[in-house]
């Protein structure tokens, strides 16, 4: 699915960031985020490997709950 997913930043290296969600690690690009907008520990909405925007921990949690709910119906 092409829906964006929330991930938490664990490391920042220039325009790249290591992010984590549900135990899965991925390197994502911060190229579309304003400089200084995010720091380690922040949550971002990720679409096709690019952070689209910083989001709150609350927003990240409820988005994951929604994705779980959809996957439960649709199957992985």
């Amino acid at each position: 699915m092409c829906l964006s997913v929330p991930m938490q930043i664990t490391e920042i290296d220039g325009f790249n960031a290591t992010c984590e969600a549900r135990g899965v690690q991925r390197t994502i690009s911060l190229f579309m985020i304003e400089d200084d907008e995010v720091a380690v520990g922040d949550f971002v909405m990720v679409h096709v490997g690019y952070a689209l925007r910083k989001i709150t921990a609350d927003e990240a949690r409820s988005t994951w709950e929604l994705i779980d709910e959809i996957l439960a119906v649709a199957g992985p």
Binding site: C2, S4, F15, S29, F31, M32, H47, V48, G49, Y50, L52
Partner: peptide, 13 residues
């Protein structure tokens, strides 16, 4: 647009 912008960013990078 959600895909086009990352592709533009990819080229710009």
């Amino acid at each position: 647009e959600t895909t086009s912008a990352p592709v533009a960013a990819m080229l710009a990078e």
